[in-house]
């Protein structure tokens, strides 16, 4: 079968110690037997490794941060579109999803397709809305409350037992053992990611994760459960293994069918000693470990691109259990000329 030629733009090229999903998503697309892709990287920083990984990324454009506003970003995308004729755009950062979801129609008018959750799906799974989410969809979630200041937490402190988990609205989570630590982590996260901060009940157990893809009609296109076998001091999985876990898959199917989830997602779950599953977070995009799913037999990045193109995708029915990933660091040697080009011209 002849491969379909597509121009695919994506962000999340920061393949660092807390990696974005861009490079693993590209690896999945490069492995595709159906898609012959030209990859256009969207970078926020001159030192993101992705732009210099020429075997994976064909061309990179610097883009303004979402916090600079929608207009500058769309102007830049428009410029990129004139040059590259992008067919599909895959945003890989939580923090930029809102902007791209809001701009879905504008992008479509430019000829750029996306495959993202709806605004309602995106909003209701926010960490600050998790208790309501759990109640609505019949999923066990730890008790949590959003706070805007330490004073707010003092008013609700008696509802929690220590330790508690202090979480940022997009990223970062710390376990705090007393009020003083809550204060420290509150300030640390708020300075980086803004408010609100979410205080969550600490559920003791093993963290397990599922990467999944919903077709937007309630069907799960694919899902692979995994346990991190090596966790860095930033809480990132540096190693993992696929699991045989029907309960995790049932929960994933239930959430996707009830919410009609559209796009990639990562479920973060805690399995307690009593074998109960608590959902602690839904990340509204494919995670950085998605290439493990590809290697285990489910090329979810390829399926996502095909769904974005309106093509038919048959749901995956199995995957290899016991497939492992071990992440590694590698000193890539780069030419100063290339750094100069990306820094000054914003293109490489």
């Amino acid at each position: 079968m002849e491969k379909i030629k597509l121009n695919i733009a994506l962000s999340g090229l920061n393949n660092i110690d807390s990696p974005g999903p861009g490079i693993p998503v590209i690896r999945g697309i490069r492995d595709s037997t159906k898609i012959d892709a030209r990859i256009i990287g969207l970078a926020y920083d001159n030192l993101e490794p992705g732009p210099y990984m020429h075997e994976l990324v064909d061309k990179t454009y610097k883009v303004p941060y979402p916090s600079d506003g929608v207009e500058p970003l769309l102007d830049r995308i428009k410029y990129i579109q004139e040059k590259e004729h992008v067919d599909v755009l895959i945003p890989n950062f939580d923090s930029e999803l809102f902007t791209f979801m809001k701009s879905e129609k504008v992008l479509r008018d430019m000829g750029i397709r996306t495959f993202l959750p709806t605004l309602q799906q995106f909003e209701e799974r926010h960490k600050s809305n998790l208790p309501q989410y759990g109640e609505k969809y019949g999923v066990k979630v730890p008790y949590s409350e959003p706070i805007g200041s330490i004073m707010d937490f003092r008013k609700i402190e008696e509802k929690f037992d220590y330790p508690v988990v202090v979480k940022g609205k997009f990223y970062d989570a710390y376990i705090a053992y007393d009020l003083e630590q809550v204060g420290i982590y509150f300030n640390k996260i708020a300075a980086k990611w803004g408010l609100p901060i979410v205080i969550q009940e600490f559920v003791r157990g093993t963290e397990v994760n599922v990467v999944a893809l919903g077709d937007g009609n309630g069907n799960t296109v694919g899902a692979v459960p995994m346990r991190k076998t090596y966790i860095t001091d930033k809480g990132k999985g540096w190693g993992g293994i696929t699991l045989q876990d029907p309960a995790m898959l049932d929960l994933t199917h239930k959430i996707i069918s009830q919410t009609h989830w559209r796009g990639g997602m990562e479920l973060e779950l805690i399995r307690t000693a009593a074998n109960e599953l608590y959902m602690i977070e839904i990340n509204p995009r494919l995670p950085a470990w998605v290439y493990l799913a590809v290697a285990a037999g489910q090329n979810l990045p390829e399926a996502l691109v095909m769904l974005a193109m309106g093509m038919e995708v048959k749901p995956f029915t199995h995957y290899e259990v016991g497939k492992m990933f071990i992440r590694y660091s590698y000193d890539m040697i780069c030419d100063l000329k290339e750094f100069e080009q990306l820094s000054t011209k914003g293109e490489l």
Binding site: T206, T229, G240, I241, T242, L243, Q244, D245, G322
Partner: peptide, 18 residues
């Protein structure tokens, strides 16, 4: 039943990944 045991003595629990 789901525990895999190889001839070399390697034991794998697919439910936990251990």
């Amino acid at each position: 039943k789901n525990i895999a045991i190889s001839d070399s003595g390697f034991v794998f629990d697919p439910g936990t990944g251990d």
